[in-house]
Design a protein around this nucleic acid. Sequence first.
DNA 1: TATATATTTAGACAAATATCTAAATATTAT
DNA 2: ATAATATTTAGATATTTGTCTAAATATATA
Lengths: 84, 84
Amino acid sequence: MNLLFKALNDQTRREILEYLKEKDLTAGEIADKFNISKPSISHHLDLLRQAGLVVSVKEGQFVYYALNTTVMDEMLKWIMQFKS
Amino acid sequence: MNLLFKALNDQTRREILEYLKEKDLTAGEIADKFNISKPSISHHLDLLRQAGLVVSVKEGQFVYYALNTTVMDEMLKWIMQFKS
DNA sequence: TATATATTTAGACAAATATCTAAATATTAT
DNA sequence: ATAATATTTAGATATTTGTCTAAATATATA
């Protein structure tokens, strides 16, 4: 839960997730969407991966990132406890 | 959204919300539940208030804090966009 | 094999954050 | 009025975080 909330506590990372909602993207394609250096984006992707929010697959020289929403269920459940 | 995610990105603050789920509490009662100084708890409560997650009402020398879950709806909606 | 491309790692740095103690403010009770 | 209680504000400090540049690693291509 800590890693999850931490990962989502950043506008850039939340936007990355929204891009990945549309389709899988390489690290470079993601970086191109922001005015932030590639190493910084790489770091953001690492935090998202640590939280389980994305998975990465290497294809040749590219690394594809894809959304994994299953970990969000835990968070949904946590929030829902307050709404009942 | 930023303030909301920020407020929830802390174990102590999340626990405060869980205590407030049971019943309204004064600042002092909340502080008593943690091994953290009262000023620090006061600061946590301020962040929760900024996020709209709690409201406070002064009653005499006490300040009662109560949960406000309506702001969680926005967050729920944001998360749900990924689950559909 | 040498070069170009894609990505990550390493290390540095400024800004944000969680915490503390001391002091200030507000209210109640003697 | 004075003292006691509840809470917040102010200011300091160590840690965490987001960012950068430079370098390292891995893969593809000429």
